[in-house]
Amino acid sequence: MSAVLEARGLQRRYGGATLALAGADLVVERGQFVALVGTSGSGKSTLLQLLGCLDRPDAGTLHIDGEDVSRLSDDALARVRNRRIGFVFQSFHLLPRLRADENVALPLRYAHVPEATRLERARELLERVGLGHRTHHLPGELSGGQCQRVAIARALVADPPLLLADEPTGNLDSTSGREILELFTTLHAEGRTIVMVTHDPHVASFADRRVHLEDGHIVRET
């Protein structure tokens, strides 16, 4: 089984009657770079949250790396997020009081990796995203583009099979945004599986599959 991600009939309803996501089917094979495209309210972010195990679907099943995660306990789900998924957010979501390397090492702390080992690994990752000289800086001392690269390093630190990104260039100027996209392209070229949410057709053009959503439905793929 080579599908990293297999979603069947995922549904999510927030409070009221409208379905944010009305039965989405999506299979992502290993090594693919997929963009979830749609306007705001189309359900693309909801889908990404479900795929990232940040939220639970009201109906449907989800397999990640071959494991059915639909019925896992909260603690088991945390383990899936920790080992199988790397998440990159639009506004970076770094902990402001941790240094860059500590932020990158955070997932390993919850995998119970000893501190010296995980900081070592974090520095390797920072090196890879071009921030080897910034390991001891706090997020407040870094530019937006640098913060996002720290966040990408954090997403990769546990070497997860699946990388998810929610509008990763949304808070960046065009230069930094391009650098980040280039980094994603490199990661993709190295064989990473990436699912990225965006509303920007240009950003989506970097992916090799574009899945379009409208009103909670997957409408087409290009």
Partner: peptide, 11 residues
């Protein structure tokens, strides 16, 4: 954020 990177509710 801690939860998102893999902290369990118990952590």
């Amino acid at each position: 954020i801690r939860l998102a990177v893999g902290a369990s509710p118990r952590d």
